[in-house]
Design a protein around this nucleic acid. Structure first.
Lengths: 251, 251
DNA sequence: CGACATGTTGAAGGGGATCAATGGTGGTGG
DNA sequence: CCACCACCATTGATCCCCTTCAACATGTCG
């Protein structure tokens, strides 16, 4: 199956927080997936739409968008490759916000039916799905704090720290260079700022972090994390297998 | 059992969105619950703490709190009676944010064990729990938009509309008077503003909505909803039983 | 009655928005 | 191969929403 490696990436996300047996892992890898390309700044899930599949990001970058009455856009979540952008749609099929590709993106559509079948057969998988959704919620909660109670520099630094940490490959230490194909307008929509002010803020951070095209170079992680008031705990990235949880069918 | 009516309220929340059979409903009503009082401005779940119970709000008001480095507080969620304030803790026992009573509050502590047993025995209940958590996430997502892309008047109006709609009793139409025991400082922490500016903003809304102590009087719902850009869809309050979902064990 | 939380009001300042223009850069087609 | 165009980054000038600080009023509860 050609999509195997992408499902593997998603499985890696799950197993970094939840303990799954090999048959359960296999069931996830065997999920049917239908690839499609979406070009930048194009919605592939629209507000209010009812879908019968969930979207796994295979490559590129996806943003969840909200909007105010004047048309001002606000990104409420970012999804990088390996993320299931709308796993919640399994349990709540009517989309409460739009999903848009921020750059050319490949997504795998996975039918809700198939996901539900796996979740019904393996309670530990259902639990892992639920937990994954709750990590997204924890991130959302941090974003409220970020936008509500931090100034521009801190917001921007926090966003970059989060993106860097989430981009980290399983087992690796913090990468100081990673891909983040966002324009300054996207950064503005993520932080509740203006594109103009994003530009000025990035300039003020230039000796700590630097964008070159779609790759980010962090020169001083400690300083970036300090100015971003960043504590990675909420991302629930288990360092040790022992920290991974399994509630279903206790041994 | 003395806590029966509170569990009934929680059950009502669940069944307003999910279809549950009578035995499943009964299992929820039979959950063990240990009441405790918390006085205002007092944390009862602390950041980073690992808990083995979830907290059902029986009376009063609860806020989930985040903080920035300078000590600025940000409320990221409000929980009214009938809400399980940290249902997510079932699947993620380490608290990512603090829970604080905003006024004198009664909470019922329900052991994770018991909740897990019910969820394991009745998949439809597990699904209802998951769905309930996703409604909280949808609210969180709206808060990001609110704080990120709306001005003070709109923010405040939106918050009040949301509180009013959530306070609505099952089956009733929109109440124009309801309890919301929050100080202006609490409102400020919920909207990412200053207490001073909350005061001025409320004054500018005075012919649409008015606080008297802890009760809110809405004089003109339509105008309040319009200035708050409020669309209740995200709260997923099913008007018709037919809109309620059940995925497990399809008929 | 006194202490303390909460609400109210004024004055001044700033962080970020807004508006507008210019400079890069990559893609595309003639 | 270059002209053109769309998109993105950058910079300056001005404005205003909201913050900050400070004082005072009001209420409430021991």
């Amino acid at each position: 199956m050609p999509h195997r490696s992408n499902l593997q990436l998603f499985l890696g996300r799950l197993t970094s927080r939840s303990l799954l047996h090999t048959d359960e892992q296999q069931a996830i890898l065997d999920l049917p997936a239908y690839a499609s390309q979406v070009s930048g700044n194009q919605d592939f899930v629209c507000l209010g739409e009812t879908s019968d599949f969930a979207c796994l990001v295979a490559a590129g970058l996806v943003g969840r968008f909200g909007q105010n009455a004047e048309g001002g856009r606000q990104i409420t979540a970012l999804h990088i490759p390996g993320d299931m952008a709308d796993l919640h749609s399994v349990v709540q099929p009517r989309a409460g916000s739009a999903l848009q590709a921020l750059t050319t993106t490949t997504i795998l559509r996975i039918p809700h039916d198939a996901i539900r079948r796996v979740a019904a057969r393996y309670p530990a998988v259902a639990e892992a799905f639920w937990r994954d959704c709750m990590v997204d919620a924890a991130i959302l909660s941090q974003w409220v704090v970020n936008v509500g109670r931090r100034n521009a520099r801190t917001r921007m630094a926090h966003l970059i720290c989060e993106a860097a940490t989430r981009s980290r490959k399983d087992g690796e230490s913090q990468a100081l260079t990673f891909q983040l194909p966002m324009t300054q307008a996207h950064l503005a929509d993520s932080t509740g700022m203006t594109a103009v002010h994003v530009n000025r803020t990035l300039k003020s951070l230039v000796d700590v972090v630097k964008f070159s095209g779609s790759t980010v170079h962090i020169h001083d992680w400690d300083r970036l994390a300090a100015t971003g008031e960043f504590d990675p705990g909420y991302l629930q990235i288990a360092a040790e297998p022992a920290e991974r949880l399994r509630i279903a069918e206790p041994a």
